[in-house]
Design a protein around this nucleic acid. Structure first.
Length: 234
DNA sequence: GTTTGATCATGT
DNA sequence: ACATGATCAAAC
């Protein structure tokens, strides 16, 4: 029943080929081939689909601050989408350093490294909430490398938010700031704290944050690749 | 319906 | 503690 998970792909072409093979297949179909049982829903298993896809494509499953495919410089992201082709959720990028130790230069940032090349694997959300997780299907994966305009927008948001962090204002940053990228909480509870800069420049306990791509932005990326046939029918 | 803030599980 | 994988659920 269970097949051994594939080894790491040796080229981006090979990776893409494997990824495209997922399109149209059900989660339980992919899982059973690898010998995994699928939980009935994602409550308590939020990372299940992401880790399943990592295995299915031969990623080195680790929690290192590295791209999923270090040799290829490719970061893998599942992307929950509605049937109209729009992203249903924001996309986690990486934790934010709020202690002031990160450069203001976007090109030097962890965020930038993560976003150099991203393989998005869409997962179509059911119109019915009762559809078991295993019956959800994969969409057609696509590779994204930020265009010059993408980079300009990302850089703008990064500089704005990173400046706020430097000024000791990370606690005041709301999720609404940033056009394509935002800074939001990232913790097991709102009581968690990490070290961050205060307005006076001291290191003080602050709420942990992470960088996310807005759903509106990833929806744009989908539309760019697959057209607006579903998203724009006005 | 969409977005923001909060949260769940797991590995090192 | 902090990184990975994200979605949940309250608020708008």
């Amino acid at each position: 029943m269970a097949e051994p998970p594939p080894s790491r792909p040796s080229s981006i072409g090979e990776l893409l080929q494997r990824a495209r093979h997922l399109a149209g297949r059900r989660i339980d179909e992919v899982a059973s081939r690898l010998g995994f049982r699928v939980p009935p829903d994602l409550r308590g298993h939020k990372g299940f689909v992401g880790q399943l896809v990592e295995l299915a494509l031969g990623a080195s499953a680790g929690s290192d601050p590295e791209p999923d495919f270090p040799d290829l410089g490719v970061e893998l992201k599942t992307l929950p989408i509605h049937e109209d082709g729009r992203a249903a959720e924001s996309t986690y990028v990486c934790v934010a350093r709020v202690d002031g130790s990160e450069s203001l230069d976007f090109r030097d940032s962890h965020v930038s490294r993560k976003l150099e090349r991203v393989l998005f694997v869409p997962v179509v959300l059911p119109r019915s909430e009762t559809l078991p997780l295993g019956e959800r299907t994969f969409g057609m994966p696509f590779l994204w490398e930020p265009s010059a305009e993408d980079l300009a927008r990302l850089t703008h948001d990064f500089r704005h938010l990173q400046m706020r962090i430097r000024l000791g204002e990370s606690e005041d940053i709301r999720g609404r700031e940033g056009e394509v990228m935002q800074l939001r909480p990232k913790a097991m509870s709102s009581r968690e704290r990490t070290w961050g800069v205060s307005e006076e420049g001291w290191l003080v306990p602050v709420k942990p944050k992470a960088w996310y791509l807005r759903a509106s932005f990833t929806s744009e990326l989908i539309a760019r690749v697959y057209g607006r046939t579903f998203a724009d029918r006005s």
